Computed example of a mutant assay.
Amino acid sequence: MVVPAHLTAEAVNELREGIDLLLGRWSALQMAIQNEWGGRDTRQKAQQLALDIYHWLIRPAEALYVDDLENLLDDFMLSLNTEIDDGSIEEISENLMIIHEECLEGNFASIERLRQSASQTANHPMQVVTGDDDDDDDDDESDSGSSSGDEPMDMEDGVDHLTVGEPGRGPTPMVDADGWTVVSSRRNRGGTR
Rank of each mutant, 00 (worst) to 15 (best):
D68R: 08
D67L: 09
D68N: 13
L51I: 00
D68G: 07
A46E: 10
S79M: 02
D68P: 00
I58P: 05
Q47D: 14
R59I: 10
Q48A: 05
R59T: 14
I58S: 04
L78K: 12
D52E: 03
H55F: 13
I53R: 12
L57P: 01
S79Q: 07
E70M: 13
E62G: 07
F76M: 00
A50H: 01
D67N: 03
S79V: 00
D75H: 08
A61S: 13
N71C: 06
A61P: 00
L69F: 10
K45L: 12
W56E: 02
Y65V: 14
Y65G: 07
A63R: 13
L51C: 03
K45P: 11
M77H: 15
I58L: 05
E70V: 08
Q47V: 05
A50C: 04
D52Q: 10
L73V: 08
A50Q: 09
N71D: 13
L73W: 05
V66A: 10
S79C: 00
A61M: 08
L51N: 09
A61F: 11
Y54P: 07
V66F: 00
W56M: 04
D75M: 10
L57D: 00
H55A: 05
D52R: 03
L64C: 12
S79W: 02
E62K: 13
L72N: 03
V66E: 15
E70H: 03
Y65I: 11
Y65C: 06
H55K: 04
L72V: 06
L72K: 08
L72P: 01
N71R: 10
W56K: 01
L78M: 04
D68M: 11
M77L: 12
L57N: 01
H55N: 11
D74T: 15
Y54A: 04
D67S: 10
